[in-house]
Design a protein around this nucleic acid. Structure first.
Lengths: 195, 195
DNA sequence: TGTTCAATTGAGCACTTGCTCAACAACTTC
DNA sequence: GAAGTTGTTGAGCAAGTGCTCAATTGAACA
């Protein structure tokens, strides 16, 4: 039996925790779900992490970071004129809704978990900055004008979170298509592009 | 010891559950918190409610209904020209943030609780309709023009939820003042009133 | 007064949770 | 080889959970 070195095991546990949290939600996921998934003893987690709370927070950080990295990567190989549509597609998450579910869950749970709150706060700020950078670049390239208010990025991020919550409540409340068009309109409005 | 008749007891339990949920959050609140608060035996809840899940959902319904009723009442004794500012104040909840916290919590929890989902969905739709009615009345009174898109109410509600989530994450993410001015701008924009 | 029955109790059950810790296994170093 | 370090185990604990149910209370009615 080849043993796994410390740092690798740590990462492995974080990824397993991430998977479990994605499936069951932050409050419903248990340490034993993670150890069972990894096929390891139930005590192992506490050799690598102070507490389940800490591991949970670490798993959410992992999720957010890899997602932002992925967006950044997609942006890099797409010409700016297509960024608006790309952003809309990204934010409305045609592919997998689970990540959005986890994000909303984390924002909510953060009110009762200071450790998680730290991670979510940092992620939110990072996320706003990505949006700001995108807007700046679009304006530089002559696509639209600079939004009137500096709070444009914050407004967009809040709108996306709110829309996601509504979409999860079902079609009667809001369809994905409606959410998508609301978001597209808002971006174009912010950039001074009348739709 | 005067005994309490069935229907009154039911209402009393719902209100106690509401208070507990407001304090501890939906996932953290326990049946025993409710019985302890009422000073009754731990088995009493199950005489009036099929399960804790049911009681929780009922408590959220109670919360939402009384809040919408209260808003309606405030609107009734305020002249329409002041409605915009009243709505902004209401949505950003200067008074007590707990109700918003519970609402966001319920929207999140609804993904894992079908009974709660039913209540939250109905509440969301009701909430959108209140906003639609307000807009209609404002337009009738000559205050602003009818919003271009019929999704205006949905967009407003989503924006409010998103802003609330951001504000709860702390001042670094979004200050209440910023949220308030974003919301005010959006309402005026929807009504065609350039700020 | 005795009868009836809904309201109420709380010990207790079965289950889950995060976490501990003595024991052991597998590498590294000497 | 021996010694030391690190990784790993899993039974077990204390604290919690929703829920059940036989037993009791109290009010209304005869």
């Amino acid at each position: 039996m080849t043993r796994i070195s410390g740092a690798d095991r740590r990462q492995q546990i974080i990824e397993a925790a991430h998977a479990v949290i994605l499936e069951k939600g932050l409050a419903q996921a248990a340490t034993r779900d993670v150890t069972r998934r990894l096929g390891v003893g139930s005590g192992l987690l506490h050799h690598y992490f102070k507490s389940w709370q800490t591991l949970r927070a670490e798993a959410v950080r992992h999720s957010v970071e890899s997602e932002i990295a992925q967006l950044q990567q997609t942006l890099d190989r797409t010409p700016p004129p297509q960024w608006i549509e790309l952003l809309v597609d990204w934010m409305t998450a045609d592919g997998d809704l689970h990540h959005w579910s986890l994000w909303l869950n984390a924002v909510d749970e953060a009110r009762r978990d200071t450790e998680l709150a730290e991670v979510v706060r940092a992620a939110y700020i990072q996320w706003q900055q990505v949006v700001i950078r995108i807007i700046d670049r679009l304006v530089e390239d002559g696509i639209g004008h600079r939004p009137g208010t500096p709070a444009a990025a914050g407004r967009l991020c809040a709108l996306v979170d709110g829309l996601a919550g509504a979409v999860f409540l079902g079609e009667q409340v809001m369809t994905p298509q409606t959410a998508k068009s609301i978001l597209r309109d808002q971006i174009k409005l912010d950039l001074g592009l009348s739709s």
